[in-house]
Each structure stands twice: as C-alpha cells, then as structure tokens.
Design a protein around this nucleic acid. Structure first.
Lengths: 242, 242
DNA sequence: CGGCGCCTTGAAAAGAATCAAGTCTCGTGG
DNA sequence: CCACGAGACTTGATTCTTTTCAAGGCGCCG
C-alpha cells in the first residue's frame, strides 16, 4: 500500500472536514489496499454487487447509466476524494456503472466491514450518510440544469462546476484546470447532442468566456461563466472524506 | 399523537422492510408528534435549516428547486413512506423545497436526536443511509429520463413510475391510482413545457395507453406504458421505513 | 354571476438533433 | 521517414421536436 491514511494528501485540503486521530486510525485499518485502473476500464458495473468499495485518490472517471434505447446518461464525474460504491454497499447493487477516464488510483475497502463502521464508528457512519446526501444534492442540481436550462447555460453550468470543484482540489493554476474528458462525455451528461455541444463550446470560446482544449479548461471570465450558469453565491461547502 | 408506531399502517406493506420490536420501540420514542400540512403549504424551504425531520404518513407532496431564471425543477414527488429533511439533518440545510400538494400527515422527529440514532441504533442508521442511497438512485433514473428521452417517453416514464409506486403502496384499484398533481408539476419534473406536456398526455390517451383526469390515473395498457418508458424488468425493491 | 385556476388546442418561432463531410492529431506499421 | 487509419473535434445544411404565443373552454368557489 503506497499511501498511508495518516498522510493522505486529500485530507489536508480545506475542502474536506478534518478527522480525529482515532478516525484516521480506523480508516487505515478499514482500507485494505490500493487499486489502479487504466483509462477506459470499467470499475463497477450497473446491476453488479461488488464486495469492494473505493475512494478515488487520484485521476478522474465517470458514472453513467445505459438506457434500453442505447443512449448513455452520464450521472456524475468522479474526481479525487469521491466515494465509489455507496449504492452497492448499502443497497446491494450499483444503479450505475463507473469507468476510469484517466489512470485512477483508489483506496479499497471491504464491503463486509462496512457494518463495523456503523457499529463502532457512528461518527464515520454519519459522515457516510453525509456523503450520500451530498450525492443527492449534486444530482438534484444536475437535474435542474438538464431539465430547465438551454444549451448555452447547460455547458456553462458543467464547465463552471468543473472549474469550482477542481479549484477546490487545488488543481487551478492561472485559471486553468485539467479536464481530460471528451466532448461526448459532457454531451451525455447534459442531455445534448455531440454536435450541439461542440457548437456551444465554440460560442463560449468566441464570447471570450472559456476555452477547453488539450484536456485543459481555461476560464477567461469566471464571473461571466458563473452568471451564464445561474450560479447562486454558494460558498465552498466542506464535506467528509471516506 | 394519533398514530402509534406500533401499529403504523405503512410498515405492514410488503414494500417496506420489517422492523424489530426494539427498533419499533426506538422509533416510537424518536417520533415526537404528528404534523398536518394543508394543500399548498411549504413544509421545508430551500436553504433553510430545520430542527424537525419528517416521514410522510399520508398525502402527497413535491420537492422542487427554484432557479435564478425563475423556472422550477421538480426533483421528486413525495408519497407516503418518504423521508423528508435528510439533507437538513446531515448537511445542515435543505437543497430543495418541499411543498404539500394534498393535505399531508407527517411523523415528526427532532433533528437534535438524530445523533442518538447513529450512536445507539446502528441498524437504523444504516437504514437511513439506505434511504439516502435510494434517493440518489431515483434521482439518477430521473436524470436519465430527462436527459435522454423524448417527450412521449418522458411522460410515459413519469406516469409509469407513479403507477408502480402507488401500486406498491396498495393504492391501485382496477388499474386506477390517485394522482392529485397538476400538469404543470409533471412538466416541471420532466423538463417540458406545459403545452407540450398537455399534448403528449392527449396522445397517450388517444393511443389508448393511459388516461389522467380528475386526479386519477387510469392505465389501460400497463405493458405498453412500461415499454414506452424503457422500463427494465425491475422487480419490486423493498426499502426501509424511517 | 364573475373571476380564477387549470386544462386544451392551433399556429408560428426557435432551439436542438440529425445528416454529411472534412480536419487534425497521434500512434502504428511498411 | 512517411503513409495510413482510428478517434476525436469542426462545421454547414437540413429536419424536426419542442417552445412560445395566443385564445378559448371548463369547473368551482365566493
């Protein structure tokens, strides 16, 4: 195991709630190892029951559902610190698939030990519920964007969200953040066609708002981007790290 | 308090997981009273931190977010058995508003006692997390429908969902279920305009699939409705009742 | 009886999907 | 070293779904 929980690089970020010594100790016992997924690998499959749960430590991925009619809905983007497998852990099986976009490193936990967490670490159990509620919140925001905004606002919304999340993770350098996804991924997330997504990105570029090229997103006018996305003045919301 | 947890009418349904004697006892202490909301009343407001949490006992309501541009996204429909206020309980404030559509009766819990649940009832805490994960699952399904389906499929999807949920609650009589919402609510849930929603409902009626009138949904061809909605052969999924 | 809320319907306008090429980059193999 | 091909990105033209606009109808309550 390369990364010991005691010097977890993620926990140091302001984005995540601090953890007590005891909690860190519990987590380091709870963590059974590390797992590296290569780009394009499926980490969890929709409908599958996994005996492992993960926390993304490094790299990026995405969550998606495949419909009967063949289309794909991206239900979330996985960035470092995100917990993977909650549904499998508490409901028995995943309701969406998870795939690695870049090379990903993940902390591995045994599902069978999840019960210990509830039994002996109520504080951590509460945090896990917090994580679940946060997921629900994020999905609600996404639903509102997909359901109510037009194309220009949708793309602004998703880029703004990436910009803010990645900035909180300390990955912002001169208003540039890494964004290794494909346009098709963003299209499938926002319920737009690839062509329309592409044209909308071009418009945002022409408008001098943001440029996304070479796996890098550059935001020239952060305020304008946030306005386009109807962002409310939301302060940084800290959350627990599992 | 009118309804004692010991003879809770909801718990008897197959839809909900059984509860141990001890758990029922804990819940009846956890429940501090009952609350009746009149139609149109706001039960919880987005951004507000409530000191009370609820479980819908009777009646129907809806969850929604209001965007800066004035539009409204319905993020969920509340039916008997649904837990209300999870986000407020664990994250400190609600991320969407909750409103009563019909007259609603709710079990009331004190947020301050939620911690006891985690500390002394790990099994119930697990169930609460299960509820949170279920919410996430339902939102994911809705996101896929709103993002990937066309109007006809979206309306089929939401009607089919109501039909199945209400049937599981024992409210199906001769393929008729109560549906006291307005067309605007369904439109705001599926990201369609009121006009288009209305025309699509007319089409489903003409096609002999389903008729929705007088707060009652009649499904003439359940199989066809399910097919239109791209429903996968999902068996009834039981869930915990809080 | 009047007004308000909700449902219904037709016509016009707009936004987004689809169709159809064409370009660029990068890794592979001749 | 260069031709080749796959995958991703661009762009224009056309089609069609969905929205917007506009108006009328129905039922219920004061």
């Amino acid at each position: 195991m390369k990364t010991d929980c005691h010097n977890c690089p993620l926990r140091k970020l302001d984005l995540f709630d601090p953890m007590s010594k005891d909690e860190v100790h519990f987590m380091s016992k709870f963590k059974t190892g590390e797992f590296v997924a290569q780009p394009g690998t499926e980490i969890l499959a929709e409908g599958a029951s996994s005996s492992q749960l993960y926390t993304a430590l490094d790299g990026m991925g995405l969550r998606f559902k495949t419909l009967e009619n063949g289309s794909r809905q991206v239900v979330g983007f996985i960035l470092p610190g995100d917990f993977i497998g909650l549904q499998s852990g508490v409901m028995g099986e995943m309701q969406h698939s998870v795939e690695a976009t870049t090379r990903m490193t993940m902390c591995v936990f045994n599902r069978s030990e999840l019960w210990d967490l509830f039994k002996y670490q109520p504080r951590r159990a509460f945090d896990l519920t917090h994580v679940a509620a946060t997921e629900e919140y994020l999905l609600g925001e996404a639903l509102a964007a997909v359901g109510q905004m037009d194309g220009y606002a949708k793309i602004s919304w998703v880029l703004n969200r990436f910009f803010r999340r990645l900035t909180a993770l300390g990955l912002n350098e001169n208003d540039q953040v890494p964004l290794p996804y494909r346009q098709q991924d963003i299209a499938d997330a926002m319920g737009l066609s690839l062509v329309h997504t592409n044209k909308t990105l071009a418009k945002l570029r022409e408008d001098g708002v943001a440029t996304w090229a070479n796996d890098t997103l550059t935001v020239h006018r952060p305020k304008m981007l946030a306005e386009n996305a109807f962002e409310r003045g939301t302060r940084l919301r800290t959350r627990p790290l599992i």
